[in-house]
Structures are given as C-alpha cells and as structure tokens.
Design a protein around this nucleic acid. Structure first.
Length: 595
DNA sequence: GTCATCGGCGCG
DNA sequence: AAAGCGCGCCGATGAC
C-alpha cells in the first residue's frame, strides 16, 4: 500500500530559486488507489483562488504530519516554498517524480513533467503551448505571473495531475526493489544537501576577477595583433573560415584530420602535432588566443552571476547525467580551469578567483584513483585486487608489462614517470575498450610491438583485460548495466562499448552521492552547519571550514574521510587525500591527519 | 530575432 | 569493424 500523498507544484516569476518568487501553486491529493483525483489551484495573492484564500491553505499543506508532498524537481519547489513560508521544510517527507523517472530509465530522452505525462498518460501539452503563445506576444520582462487566469489555471491543474499520475506509475516500481529504493532515498537526501550547497554558494574575489579579466583580455588582443602582423589582415580565430585560411592557406600547414562533417579539424591535439612538426608561431598564437579569450568570457560570466555579497550560487543537477553523476551549471563550477595541466600550456589561473569566506579556509577531500579501483573491483582480477589491497601501484605494473626492462632499468625518475603515465593511460584505454591501434598511438610504439605486449598484459591481468568485453556483452543483452548499489544505467543503443565506462562512472557517482549525504548530515550534527560542503566534483568534496574551529579540525576531517571511505560493498580500499587552501582555490597544499 | 547544431575545450 | 566516457558553455553558423 502506498499511502496518501499530495502532489504539489509551484508557479514562480522565474527560475532563479534565490531571487524569483512563488505566485501560485496547485495540489492534487490522492490515496494509494488514486481512483479519483481532483487538482486544486491556488494563487498566493488570493485574487484568483478557486476555493480558499491562499496563504492559509499553503501553511496547511505544509503543516507537520501531513501526507508527503510529491513534486517534479523538488530542488526547485522546496526552496521556493521555504522562502514563501519563511521556515525550513527540511524535516518534511517528500517524493520527486523526476528522480523516479531518472532512476527507472536513466537514458530517457526527457524527464520533463509534460513529456513524461504525455508519453505515459496521454495528457496533451497544449496548456504549455498556450502559455508560450501568450508570452511570445509580450515585450520586455515576461514571466508566468502575467499569464491570464484561465490559461494558468488549466496549466496548474494539469501539472498537479501529471505529478500524481507519474508518482503512481513510478513509485511502486521503485519500492518493489529494495536496492533501488535505497538509491532513491539517498537521492532524496541528496536534494536536501544540494539545496544547502546552492544556497551557501562560493565566494568570488571581484577585484581580482576584474584585474585578471583585464590582463587576460589585453594579452588576447595582443595575440590578435600578432596574427594580423603575420597575416596582413584582422583574423577572428573563432571563425572556422578565418582559421582555416590562416592555418592551411597562409601558413601552408597540412590538414591532418577532418571533423565528422568533413571540415578541417583544428582542435588542440591537432595543433600540438603541427606545432611539434613545424613549430610555426601562428599555431602558438591560436592556442594562446583560444585559452585566453575563453577564460575572459568565463570570468565575465562569474561577475554577472555573482550576488551582492560576492557569492556565486550554482545549480547542482542531481539527476540529469546518464551515468548518475551530478552536474553543475550557471555557472559550472566543476570545470573551472586550473594551472599546471600539461595539455593546457596557456592556462589562466581562474581558480585563484574563488576564495574562502572571510575567516574560513577550504578543505578538499578527493578519492585517489577511484575509477581504476572500481574497475579492479568489478574485474575480480585477483592479481590487481591483491596489489591494490597491499598498497601497490597498478600503473607501474602496467608499465613493466608494456615497457619491460626498459621501464625496470630506467634510472631517470622523470622518464620513468612519463612511462608510468603512458601505461596508466593504457590501463584506462583497455578498461574502456580501446583497440590495439589506439594503445600503440598512446604508447608511441609500433602496432606489432604493442600486439605482443598486449598479449602478455592479457595473460598477467586476465580479469581486467576481459572486463570491457564482459560489460559490453551484458549491455547488449539487457540494455543496461547495474552498479553494485543497484543503480541501473541504460547504455545508448548501438554503443554498448561504453558500458564499462557507465558502470564505473556510475558507481563512483553512487559513492560520492552517498558520501555527500553522510558528510553533510555529520557536519550539521557535529558543527551545527558551521563547517559545510561547498561543492561536489565527481570524486571530491570541497568543504569550507571556519578558522575559529581549528581546534576541531582533526576530528571533523577524520570523521568526514571515514564516512567517505566506508563502503563495505567495495572490497578494494578507497583511498582519499586531503588538501587545504587558505587564500584561494588555486593555492592548495597537502593536508595530513595526525596519526 | 530565435533556435538548433557544430566544433572546440574546461573539468572529472 | 572500431570505439575511452561524462558533463556545461562558448562563438559561429545557417535555417526559420
């Protein structure tokens, strides 16, 4: 028996959770049979309410002890409602049909309410069309609160109905599978932490941001001048036409690769190859311009998105990615450029713009090599399991296999490191189904040589070498792979070879999502929220820590790391490392717990 | 003017 | 037959 629930949907003046406001809401109550349901529509100002004046009703809906509310994208409706009510709803039970949809069919083309309700219940989308049509005729600032009463009411009624129907379609499927229910419940907890993370946001240094924008822009313009000197006319390197002319006509460089639509490829790897062979200064200029102009627009967007307190509030998407990962947008703080990346020689120190709030430092806890460890776990390769358990280095082992005595006898640590790095790339290539040709290219060795050494690799590490094919076949047969935690990841049709990647990325996502919930709960209980998560980044938690609590730091971080690593389901150890930044995100230094 | 697509690139 | 993957965001481009 499902028990009674109330579908709940807000209408707002915009999509910004921190700024825009609720002006209307609708509900739809239903018991477990859901035999007859009547949507009810309300307006906050009481002007167009059907049955009640609104404020009383909204309070009533969210009174303690009422039935759980079902929302579609609760991460939007919950904080919006909290702002209207002026109180926290964190103890309130709820459901989310978007999460349900995502768990049941991770690769569905759309988890949008209207699309799902049309597909599963045949509810037409013309209510939404009517709103769009109305707003299209309006000029200037437009939002849903301007939509006339009959159109809006129809829309609200249908959304409440849609939500309750989806819940009654999806939730029984989830509840019938204990592991899937556990994944679902963690996703609901994750909504709570994500709301708090978005609300807290990250602090930007606006002065530094302006300065860096100016200097970087000057440098980029200087590069344009250099190119003009050489080319005899102004060139826009972002324009394919201009760039193709510059590289392949004027400079006479050869076209080494084409894009899928048959145009000359000018991506960085191609430019690196051309640079190595011809060393033409115009290549350098293009690389510089791209990196610097992109950094400028990125930094400008930060200034636009920053609030009056210099805080950037990104959006965390917890159920968008096909692999179960979280993503981040407006802005994406999970891909902020950093210094010291080999393939990015002209990097701009954008991370240095992010800083701890006054009186705080930032800690970073990241899983080291989690993807490879999970590959080892799923492969059941006994050699590698034992090696990882005993603290050995699987990538050095791969280097020995691929480079043999050449690696073993190498005395120069720099060269040795390069070889290990190549072998590490190979380990991943093999896990994720690369062919011998790709591997040979990555190792810079003849295909014939790699062929022989790959045979040896398969003999020494049979489990790992077989993982990709095993998962690919499984995905081909059933359409999905399932993580150890019970998350099903549907693999794109005709692309079964991505199965291993989905499995491993999805498992890492399960782990970080659970870790995030645990650490968040712990930090709230142990520090009253003074220590808080700033951001999840796939295998890492960023944590802001007040200096005045430094007396606690050992205990708090030790507990956090322990919570992150406590996964008895995975029988290879999950190592985590810590770093600390006092000034900004760029200047991190290692942090060790005392013994 | 608006929209979708592409190539390109940052992070993991 | 062969293939590492995921995400979000940008400017350019061409169709409507």
């Amino acid at each position: 028996m499902g028990g009674a629930v109330i579908a709940y949907d807000t209408e707002t003046t915009g999509l910004n959770v921190h700024r825009d406001e609720v002006f209307a809401y609708s509900i739809c109550e239903a018991d477990s049979s859901a035999a007859t349901v009547y949507p009810e529509v309300y307006r906050l100002d009481g002007s167009a309410v059907r049955r009640y004046t609104s404020r009383v009703k909204l309070e009533d809906i969210w009174k303690e002890g009422k039935a759980p509310k079902v929302m579609h994208k609760s991460k939007f409706d919950l904080p919006m409602t909290e702002r209207v009510l002026g109180r926290s709803l964190k103890e309130q039970p709820f459901h989310d049909t978007m999460i349900q949809s995502h768990l049941i069919r991770s690769n569905h083309p759309s988890h949008a309410l209207k699309d799902l309700a049309w597909e599963l219940a045949g509810i037409p989308k013309d209510d939404e069309d009517a709103i769009k049509k109305f707003l299209k005729g309006k000029k200037g600032d437009r939002n849903y609160s301007m939509v006339p009463e009959p159109i809006m009411t129809e829309y609200q009624e249908r959304d409440a109905l849609r939500t309750i129907l989806l819940h009654h379609f999806f939730y029984p499927q989830i509840k019938s599978d204990p592991k899937m229910l556990e994944v679902y419940n963690n996703e609901l907890d994750l909504i709570r932490t994500s709301i708090d993370i978005e609300r807290r946001g990250m602090m930007l240094n606006p002065q530094r941001c302006h300065t860096l924008i100016n200097s970087t822009e000057r440098a980029a313009l200087g590069v344009l001048d250099d190119i003009e000197q050489y080319a005899g006319r102004r060139i826009n390197p972002d324009s394919p036409n201009d760039l193709h002319w510059l590289l392949f006509q004027k400079a006479g460089l050869p076209i080494t690769r084409y894009t899928k639509t048959g145009k000359p490829c000018t991506e960085k790897e191609v430019l690196f190859d051309l640079r190595r062979e011809f060393g033409h200064h115009v290549i350098e200029s293009v690389l510089k311009f791209r990196s610097w102009s992109k950094a400028v627009t990125t930094m400008r967007s930060y200034l636009k998105l920053m609030d009056a307190d210099h805080i950037i509030h990104p959006t965390l998407n917890t159920c968008e990615a096909d692999t179960g990962r979280e993503s981040c947008s407006n802005p994406n703080l999970q891909n902020v450029p950093k210094m010291g990346v080999l393939l990015n020689p002209y990097a701009v120190p954008v991370r240095s713009l992010f800083m701890p709030r006054p009186g705080h430092v930032i800690f970073y806890i990241d899983f080291s090599g989690i993807e490879f460890r999970l590959a080892v776990y799923y492969s059941r390769d006994q050699t590698l399991i034992n090696l990882v358990r005993s603290g050995g280095d699987p990538h050095a082992l791969a280097a020995e296999i691929f480079f043999g005595d050449q690696f073993r006898n190498e005395r120069d640590p720099a060269i040795k490191k390069t070889m290990r790095n190549a072998a590490k790339n190979m380990n991943f290539a093999i896990i994720y189904g690369a062919g011998v040709a790709t591997i040979a290219a990555g190792l810079n060795l003849p295909v014939s040589v790699v062929m022989a050494r790959y045979q040896e690799y398969k003999r020494r590490l049979p489990g790992l070498a077989a993982l990709s094919e095993r998962m690919t076949k499984l995905a081909q047969a059933q359409g999905y792979v399932e993580t150890v935690f019970g998350r099903r990841l549907y693999v794109p049709r005709g692309q079964a070879f991505v199965a291993t990647n989905y499995l491993i990325q999805g498992t890492a996502a399960d782990i970080l999502k659970r870790a995030q919930v645990r650490v968040d709960k712990y930090l709230k209980a142990a520090t009253g929220g003074e220590v808080a998560i700033l951001l999840p980044i796939h295998d890492e938690l960023v944590i802001e820590y007040p200096r005045k609590r430094m007396a606690d730091v050992q205990e708090v971080l030790r507990s956090s790391v322990e919570l992150m690593q406590d996964f008895p389901e995975i029988d290879v150890p999950l190592d985590a490392e810590m770093q600390v930044a006092a000034a900004n995100w760029e200047s991190k230094s290692p942090f060790k717990l005392t013994a």
